[in-house]
Structures are given as structure tokens and as C-alpha cells.
């Protein structure tokens, strides 16, 4: 229990101190992307479902918020809620189709659906702005708070960030979290105990989708713009990367991964317009470093894989 409070205190402290030591816009992006990374950790780390389509939910949240605020003429809070609900619903639909597929096929299918979502956004340019993205988004005041003030907006995001952390951590420690961890190791045994493994995994997929949608929504509010990149598969790969470098055993790991990612992205883009190349090289570098360094991570994933293989024979 104390350990929980300690971790919570650290997360709150991080949210409070970050804007004091680094530019507030970067700090803000970190906490928003961190929500996305934590959401992704629920499916990848906790449930062992290797989703390579998380950007589809992040992007759904982003576009739904963008649309609600501009063409929809809605105020801010309903727009965020619509983003969350819409992303969760999308995850529910996609999940219902693919959750029975495991391992290799699950990875490919999440990617394929992500690409489909990207394609829809690209083609449906009348609504989404296509390749140019969606601009003209304004942060309407919420209950007297002027969100155009950078600090106020940061505080608004920080509250949601801490809340997301608490909720996702609780889910990880809840019966559902334990069922997911167990099913990752031996889905067949969990079924013979009477658990609907697919049901639990689908629930995790939807919850993850909801928080990814929230992150996408806040991202759009932060930049007052929906870039088409927000729904591209590169974003899906990036968030998996964040989770892996941060570590999957707790919800703090993905926060660290998000911080490293956002910070590096900022750094690389200052250095060179071709920053994505540097970033790709960095990913390759890290992959090889992790190989020797985080042995524990290794063993854990190797065991998951063995269990998976034994299972699929």
C-alpha cells in the first residue's frame, strides 16, 4: 500500500516539477503522450497482446475531438468525452473481430486495421482535411478556466494524466489485471478455470482504446491541430517503442518511455529536418542495447513467447 502511495507521489511530483525544469510545451506533450503509452502498456505489457494499431485509437480520439470542436460546434468537455467513447467503441469493434487471433496474426491485423483507419482519413478529406490534417481548433473555456493560458491548460492535462495513471494502475492490480497476466501465460488454464479469456482481453483492449482516445483528444487541444500523423502506423510503432524502453512491469515505465520519446523527438527535430531517420537509428541502437542490458525484461518476454508457442503448437 505504501509502495502504491510512493509511486503516486512520484507521478504527481513529476507532473508538478516537469514544467519548471523543461519548457512547458514539451512537458505538456510528455504527459499527454504518457497517457497513450500507459494505455498501450495495458494491452502489451499486462495482457501480452502485441498491438501495432494503437494509433488508430489515438487518431480516432484526435479526429473526433477536432470534428466535435469545429464542425460539430460542441464545447470542450463533451468533445473529449466523445473522443473517449468513440475510441473505445472502435476498439470494441476491431477487438471483436481480431481478439481470437493471437501472436503473429494479432500483430498483423492490428496493423492492417490501423492502415485502414489511415486510409479512411486520407480519402475522406472533406471531413478530415486529408493529408493536410484538421486545423482551426480552439480551446473553449471550461467552467471559467481559460485553457488558452498555457499553465492552466497544462494543469488541466496534468489532472487527467494523474487520474489516468491511478485508474490504469488500479486496473493492473485488479482482478481483471491478474486474469490478464495469467491468461498471457496460460490462456487455456484460465479458460478451464471458467474465465472468458477473450472477454477479459477485449475489455482490456477497449479500456486501452478509451485512454488512447483521451490522449489523442488532449494532443489535438495542445496543438490546436490534428496532424494525419496522429493516426499513422508510425505512431503505433512509436508507442510500442516507448512501452518497451520504459519497461512493462509497471505503469511508471511507460511514462518514462514517453518522456524519453518526446524529449528525443524534440532534440532530433532541432538537429535535422530528417529527424525521423535519426529516430529510426536510435530505435535500432536501443534494441541492441536492451538485448544486453535489461535482462530481466528479456526473460520475461521470452517466457511469454514460450508459453504462446507451446500453446499454438
Amino acid at each position: 500500500m505504501n509502495k502504491n502511495l510512493l509511486a503516486l507521489a512520484a507521478v504527481v511530483l513529476l507532473a508538478v516539477v516537469a514544467p519548471m525544469v523543461i519548457p512547458i510545451s514539451i512537458a505538456n506533450e510528455i504527459i499527454v503522450i504518457a497517457i497513450f503509452a500507459m494505455a498501450t502498456n495495458l494491452v502489451i505489457g499486462v495482457a501480452g497482446l502485441y498491438s501495432f494499431g494503437q494509433a488508430m485509437f489515438f487518431g480516432a480520439g484526435a479526429y473526433l475531438t477536432g470534428y466535435s470542436l469545429t464542425a460539430g460546434g460542441l464545447s470542450l468537455v463533451p468533445s473529449i468525452l466523445i473522443a473517449i467513447a468513440g475510441a473505445a467503441a472502435l476498439a470494441g469493434i476491431v477487438g471483436a473481430v481480431i481478439i481470437r487471433r493471437s501472436g503473429f496474426y494479432f500483430m498483423m491485423l492490428t496493423f492492417a486495421f490501423n492502415q485502414m483507419a489511415f486510409y479512411v482519413v486520407l480519402v475522406w478529406s472533406g471531413v478530415t482535411g486529408g493529408e493536410d490534417g484538421m486545423a482551426g481548433i480552439k480551446r473553449a473555456p471550461v467552467g471559467g478556466l481559460d485553457l488558452n493560458d498555457r499553465s492552466v491548460f497544462y494543469a488541466f492535462c496534468a489532472v487527467l494524466f494523474v487520474a489516468s495513471y491511478v485508474i490504469l494502475r488500479q486496473i493492473k492490480k485488479s482482478p481483471l489485471g491478474l486474469v490478464l497476466e495469467a491468461a498471457k501465460e496460460n490462456p487455456r488454464r484460465m479458460a478451464s478455470l471458467g474465465y472468458s479469456v477473450h472477454g477479459a482481453q477485449l475489455a482490456a483492449f477497449m479500456i486501452s482504446g478509451a485512454f488512447a482516445g483521451l490522449a489523442g483528444s488532449l494532443y489535438v487541444l495542445l496543438y490546436r491541430f490534428v496532424p494525419i500523423d496522429s493516426i499513422s502506423w508510425i505512431m503505433s510503432g512509436n508507442v510500442v517503442f516507448m512501452v518497451v524502453i520504459g519497461g512493462m512491469s509497471s505503469m511508471v515505465g511507460p511514462i518514462m518511455g514517453a518522456a524519453v520519446f518526446v524529449w528525443l523527438q524534440g532534440l532530433f527535430s532541432l538537429l535535422w529536418a530528417q529527424w525521423a531517420l535519426l529516430f529510426g537509428l536510435f530505435i535500432i541502437f536501443v534494441v541492441f542495447t536492451l538485448r544486453g542490458g535489461l535482462i530481466e525484461l528479456f526473460k520475461r518476454v521470452a517466457r511469454i513467447r514460450r508459453a504462446g508457442e507451446a500453446h499454438h503448437g
Partner: peptide
């Protein structure tokens, strides 16, 4: 404990697993 807990919980609990309280 966790192994047996999962079995006991299923016997106690008919619906979907809870997702808030620490198990």
C-alpha cells in the same frame, strides 16, 4: 496465493472480473 486466488475468485464471482479494487 495468486494461482489459487484466481480459482476462488471465479467460484465467488459470476460476472466479469472486477477492475478497480486491488485483487
Amino acid at each position: 496465493f495468486e494461482n489459487v486466488w484466481l480459482a476462488s475468485y471465479r467460484a465467488d464471482h459470476a460476472g466479469a472480473p472486477g477492475l478497480w479494487r486491488d485483487f
